[in-house]
Nucleic acid binder design. Structure first.
Lengths: 210, 210
DNA sequence: TAGATTGTTAATCGATTAACAATC
DNA sequence: TAGATTGTTAATCGATTAACAATC
């Protein structure tokens, strides 16, 4: 159990969590690796291997308790607690993240947005204020922030990220299409929407060959 | 060369394309697998293997011509042509996609949005009209559409997707947090934003152990 | 030519799948 | 108990890396 967890396993964890939540809402209380595998289109063997990276949550002859496993995986993901987020850039993407209600529903709470457009200062998006990007240092000096969403123009993304790291931010969710240079102790997860669309284009084009 | 292309390679292709575009705009004309590897944090060996899935674009003793390789990969990705898109759902996400200018810049053109809110019918987002979701069949009967962006509430996502497939759509870019059931001849690429945030949470939490 | 760097084959590494004893 | 299903070890498969002859 425990020990090293490969990137491949990490990427599957949110899927487990989502499917377990669905099962819960369907009133399903128990599931086997077999059943879970059919649902998620993975082999039962892989399900068991994945789950056992974190310890034996199942019972022989029974399977897994849905709620229990969901809670375990939630704790492993770290989403059993609130995360305070700020959004850098109040453009299309920043707005969409701020207005989403699926993020708060999962404990990701937007506390403020920052932009360079003076027209936007003082306004609110959803229930979050839009502030002057120049005030970010002062803001971070007094506010506790877990995650910064980077939704600024590509050209300024690296510079904004540097200011965030210099002021204590340790995690960035990056929507700008650049590979940010970042200190080793920080975490960056990229979204790179354009790339998804390009992969879709590729797969459409090569559908026959597969 | 050519033949089977693994999912791992496909996922790297847009990164190649982006870095080659950057190199072009920096005026760099030639690059070796070594140089490309340093830039993208991959091994030179992997760069050469990846590129050779599609044929020998390099020259011994020289490397790769940046523009030539960028064009080749663009063609492989299928982004050397226009793609006509519709957006299902004119909410936060649908709006953000419609208003983005990075998609049209890469040949992905939004031609219309569809929503269920009568208040939105007849309005425009960016330069695209918002139409009644109920008119989708009539629309698809006369309009050529390559890709549908699915940005409707989770609960209706599957039903909307079914209507799209029944009316000739072969590719869906899905933002709803569900694994869509879909005919084998169709292509679905999922975005699942929430999952990215959960992975970020996981990585923050386990930073020490790595 | 000599040096650099590809294309490609072989070796290694890691992830997935299969198998099965342990046990609920 | 008998049947089901896990946790875990071993086998397989695939992807990455290393090596090197071909050649620009």
């Amino acid at each position: 159990m425990a020990g090293y967890v490969s990137e491949a396993v990490i990427r599957r964890l949110p899927g487990y969590y989502r499917h377990l939540k669905e099962l819960e809402s369907e009133g399903v209380m128990q599931i086997s690796s077999q059943g879970m595998g059919e649902r998620m289109k993975l082999t039962a063997s892989q399900i068991r291997q994945d789950i056992n990276c974190f310890g034996g949550f199942g019972r022989q002859g029974y399977g897994y308790n849905v709620t229990e496993l969901r809670e375990h995986i939630g704790r492993i993901l770290g989403i059993d607690r609130m995360h305070r987020m700020i959004i850098m850039g109040a453009g299309n993407i920043g707005r969409a993240v701020a207005l989403s209600d699926s993020f708060p529903a999962n404990g990701f709470q937007v506390i403020a947005l920052f932009d360079t457009d003076p027209q936007k200062f003082g306004s609110t998006i959803g229930s979050s204020p839009v502030k002057d990007l120049e005030s970010i240092e002062a803001f971070l000096a007094v506010q506790s922030v877990d995650i910064a969403v980077l939704a600024v123009p590509t050209a300024t993304a690296q510079a904004v990220a540097n200011r965030l790291w210099d002021n204590g931010i340790r995690a960035i969710w990056n929507f700008a299409p650049v590979d940010l240079k970042h200190p080793r102790e920080t975490t960056v997860v990229n979204v790179h929407l354009e790339e998804g669309l390009e992969i879709l284009s590729f797969k459409m084009k090569h559908k026959n060959n597969a």
